[in-house]
């Protein structure tokens, strides 16, 4: 009799253990199905890495920004810098074509200067001369020195002796990493 009772108790114990396990398994499987977010995230990441390399900041997903909101250059994203250079035709030109040519060259130089300012920065020096509690002379000097490669002129306009050129340059992380 004792044997029968003990065996039945043992059997009951085993069945409870198995049902518990199966329920836990069910719960865990339902949890896996019920939380699809991590899987989707994983799929998204996979898609991002298999995508072709981005060519400009618009196509590279979330753009890293600095403290004042300006876009930062990262390994993933290339930056496109666009500037507008301006040049004026000299007064004593032989023909309108010459005026256009000279103004355009001046505008390109201005565009290069603006790109150099953006990429490398500007050195600024200020001097104020004060005599007898009055400002006698105020001078601000700025200078830029850089080498610029592969800048493109995208648009040119010439109106009333003023030439404007839109220039752009693509800056990538690898150009600076050494």
């Amino acid at each position: 009799m004792k044997r029968v009772i003990s065996s039945s108790i043992f059997a009951a114990l085993i069945t409870t253990i198995f049902t518990g396990c199966s329920m836990f398994a069910k719960e865990s499987s339902s949890k896996d199905l019920g939380e699809p977010v991590p899987i989707e995230k994983g799929q998204l990441i996979e898609k991002e890495t298999s995508a072709p390399k981005v060519s400009n900041e618009e196509n590279c997903g979330v753009q890293a920004t600095g403290p004042s909101g300006e876009p930062l250059l990262t390994k993933e994203c290339k930056l496109v810098i666009t500037v507008l250079g301006q040049g004026v035709a000299p007064v004593n030109t032989v023909s309108p074509a010459q005026a256009y040519g000279l103004a355009k060259r001046a505008a390109i130089a201005d565009g290069y200067r603006l790109i150099a300012e953006k990429i490398k920065g500007v050195r600024v020096e200020g001097n104020d001369l004060i005599k007898n509690m009055m400002v006698k002379q105020s001078t601000i000097r700025t200078c830029v020195d850089a080498v610029i490669k592969n800048a493109n002129v995208t648009e040119t306009t010439f109106k009333d002796g003023l030439c404007e050129v839109e220039m752009e340059i693509v800056v990538s992380h690898s150009q600076f990493a050494q």
Binding site: Y112, R113, Q137, S138, R141, V144, D145, V147
Partner: peptide, 13 residues
């Protein structure tokens, strides 16, 4: 395109 050196100086007096 090959690479130009840009030297710019301005003065505001």
């Amino acid at each position: 395109k090959l690479g130009m050196q840009v030297k710019h100086n301005d003065i505001t007096t």
